[in-house]
């Protein structure tokens, strides 16, 4: 998956929200608004790392009838009309139940560019699934935090093929504040590691200020909760993206 040199902007949306078939249209809008790649969230009944907004959109998406098979149909549709890289993000249980190999095979066939599975812990991935991911050549994108030990970050660096997802702070998704001095210092410590893999920052990016801050240090930002809220508030995608990118 190819990223720009800098200022990559990625949007997360829950597949199946607000309507079951919203994703293809939203992706088109996002592409027109200048977004660099998309994260499509596979809704789960018990999203442990997510705040209230993504919990809510997940529940609505599930009630709308979203499943992995439906999602794959939508990905196929999106891929026909768009060159934007698509990363799928979902908790491990639905993927495990679907069948990890079957899932990876489908991803490969559809040209999915990467996967984010927040609760597939690194050791478990390495022990049980790494070989399978490599067979199907689907990069797994790992999360790190500013508190992740350096040797663990180095392990992640070695295993990462697309980018590393840096979680901005110790919080579930949707935290809304500016970055503190301590957070910026922690970012700088990660920056100083000079990782060979691009770093995208997510969790808590909700306006131009937070977007700018992380883009100045890293390769780009991922926005989720703020975008989902803007959908609920009937803000147009174009206006939302213009506001964030500035």
């Amino acid at each position: 998956m190819k990223l720009n040199k800098k200022n990559n902007c990625s949007i997360f949306l829950t597949a199946g929200y607000p309507q079951l078939n919203s994703a293809p249209k939203l992706v088109e809008e996002l592409e027109n608004a200048g977004i660099d790649f998309i994260e499509l969230g596979i809704p789960f009944s018990d999203p442990l790392a997510d705040g209230p907004v993504i919990q809510e959109t997940s529940t609505i998406a599930l009630n709308n009838g979203m499943t992995i098979d439906v999602l794959f149909e939508q990905v196929a549709e999106i891929k026909m009309n768009s060159a934007l890289p698509i990363v799928l993000m979902g908790y491990f249980n639905p993927i495990y139940t679907y069948g990890v190999e079957k899932f990876l095979k489908q991803c490969k066939a559809l040209g999915v560019d990467g996967l984010i599975i927040p609760d597939l812990e690194i050791d478990i991935y390495e022990f049980e699934y790494k070989a399978l991911f490599e067979t199907y050549d689907i990069p797994l994108i790992f999360l790190i935090t500013t508190a992740t030990p350096v040797d663990r970050i180095r392990r992640v660096e070695k295993m990462s093929k697309a980018f590393i997802y840096l979680v901005s702070s110790s919080a579930t998704t949707g935290a809304k504040a500016s970055f503190s001095k301590g957070q910026i210092q922690a970012f700088e410590r990660i920056k100083a590691l000079n990782l060979k893999v691009p770093i995208m920052v997510g969790f808590g990016i909700h306006n131009n200020e937070t977007y700018r801050t992380v883009c100045n240090l890293f390769d780009g930002a991922i926005i989720g909760t703020a975008y989902l809220k803007s959908i609920a508030n009937k803000v147009s995608t174009k206006a939302f993206v213009a506001d964030i990118i500035g």
Partner: peptide, 21 residues
């Protein structure tokens, strides 16, 4: 239940065919 992941461990879990708890 079938094999699945709930609250951080792999165990038997009551879930739908789509892996929703």
């Amino acid at each position: 239940g079938t094999v699945g992941i709930i609250h951080g461990s792999k165990s038997l879990v009551m879930q739908t065919d789509n892996g929703q708890i």
